[in-house]
Design a protein around this nucleic acid. Sequence first.
DNA 1: TCTCATCGTCGATGCGCTTCGACAACGACC
DNA 2: GGTCGTTGTCGAAGCGCATCGACGATGAGA
Lengths: 335, 335
Amino acid sequence: MVTINDVANAAGVAPSTVSYVISGKRSISPKTRRLVEESIRKLGYHPHAGARALASSKTNVLALVVPLRTDLNVAVVMQFVAAAVTAARAHDHDLLLLTKDEGPAALQRVASSAIADALIVMDVEAADPRVPMLLALDRPVVLIGVPDHPAGLSCVDLDFTAAGSACVAHLADLGHRSIALIGPSPAVYRRGTSYATRFLDGFDETARSRDVRASSRPCAHSYEAVSACLDDLLAADPDLTGLVVHNEAVLPALLSDLRHRGLRVPEDISVVAVCPDTMAEQHAVALTTVAIPAEEVGAQAVEMTMRRLAGHTTSEVRLLGPRLTWRDSTAAPRA
Amino acid sequence: MVTINDVANAAGVAPSTVSYVISGKRSISPKTRRLVEESIRKLGYHPHAGARALASSKTNVLALVVPLRTDLNVAVVMQFVAAAVTAARAHDHDLLLLTKDEGPAALQRVASSAIADALIVMDVEAADPRVPMLLALDRPVVLIGVPDHPAGLSCVDLDFTAAGSACVAHLADLGHRSIALIGPSPAVYRRGTSYATRFLDGFDETARSRDVRASSRPCAHSYEAVSACLDDLLAADPDLTGLVVHNEAVLPALLSDLRHRGLRVPEDISVVAVCPDTMAEQHAVALTTVAIPAEEVGAQAVEMTMRRLAGHTTSEVRLLGPRLTWRDSTAAPRA
DNA sequence: TCTCATCGTCGATGCGCTTCGACAACGACC
DNA sequence: GGTCGTTGTCGAAGCGCATCGACGATGAGA
């Protein structure tokens, strides 16, 4: 193993000088710098992360806590992760993956043993048991999602209330008077994951203010569940002309079942989906969507984390405005 | 921060004794053990990971290199990751996430700076440029996937050759005489990711030996690409009665397009898909599948890694036998 | 009773790095 | 020519832990 001493010897300087060349924390003469940098390159020197962490109390590692359930969309989670790791690398940090399953204790462990400098936590629930623990930690924490009491913690998320509102507004603008929301699986509501209720709030509120008849149902993502859900919604309101789908996993089954019932999209029924843009074009009819900006949220989470690591101590809640893209799955209802 | 000294003082023993209590590397009297363990609990002591790594040259961290492309199935990647992190935690290890995009240099970096004890590399290509570098590393490496020259590296993967074979055999057993393979996107072949060609080999070989007419095409996952692909296949052989789909992303579009053409599954055409089992039930017709055992592969990769960390130096190539589940999308062809 | 293992504990050392204070060398200034 | 501030470099200390050799205590065997 190549150590800082090897580099120092090769360059004919003291180890501390090498350290200062690397960190830039003291001025170094151009000659010395060149000498040291060359030795580093020649020897293929990489500082020992453990030693560095021990001496500086900084690990250059961010911990990311992800949910591993299959009832919320795995592809979206992966997009978050991808964006986060990319952003972290851009700041010379690595990403450690933790699972939500390990519970609060894992967060404690990672913080106390100085495995990571900061934590990013996904899939935060309304009354998340991890929140009080995270507050007690002496490390920066950024949540993806918004709990009921985020005081003191930074949060970033899509503005789901506005997203729900935007979906209804789009359909209302097109002239729809009766719509329904197909929501996440019941388990998501049961858990109290806040985005579900926030979306519903925006949906209901705007439906009311735009005078649109609206109902909503959670829906699991098996074909049977989707079918049953449609049965219910259509029975409750046979004049339904618009569907808002806040559950990506349901889309294949839903579109398939609609066709099965002889309902054409968008001629007979319009569909707005909340999902990643990449998913919009995968179906027979390109879907009108409110995008889930996973990349942006992931990147923002890292940026906020880095800012807090740099000393900015103010916590902030950042809600990203929804972006609706009108594609082929929505149109004015038949007269 | 609570250190081993604090624990030692609280328990009235030497720091080294505390260390031995934790590691179990020397015998400790029951009385002392109890004393120390209580102090650890009371103080909430967690060993400093950096210090530990420095002193022991072990980090208890596994690095996992994942592809972040969207042209191969993200959900499957996530399943691997989930399985790996869970298995790693079961062995008291954490998982560090690296992206394939960072190239070979990142692997070098992680190894040389002692950030991780071992590497698990996904999405290995036939002539992967990372392979020689990985061989030069003095750390255990396990590949998910099989390169052309794996000598010296451990590999684990689904036996895609056998999987291709199993799909054909299933259709042949049902009486199909003319089938086609819808493969991964052209980019996957271009990259030379070996599972694509291995699957194709098994497919072709078994078609030949079972005397089944067979053709194959790569296919991107947009609706248009799928449609064009079907056009081609049906034009080439209008009597086609069986479809093998080795491209999960294509399934929604494919099933939708088949119905569009008036082809019922399985009455008019049988479909076997290679995809995670969880995906099989999400469609109108439950799909006959050869499962991609992502969890098992991910877990195996970790197990193999741990074994090598424990001193087992022999590298091994482990190919998991395919498991075909007969559901509703395959049947005997119409007479 | 004496010797010799064995068991349980301790203290010292060093892992590779960052960081702090010290200190030459140098130029600017009165 | 002497003083003072700068600039660039060095040496030493210490981060928290694992590990090794040492050593007292204990018990078995003769």
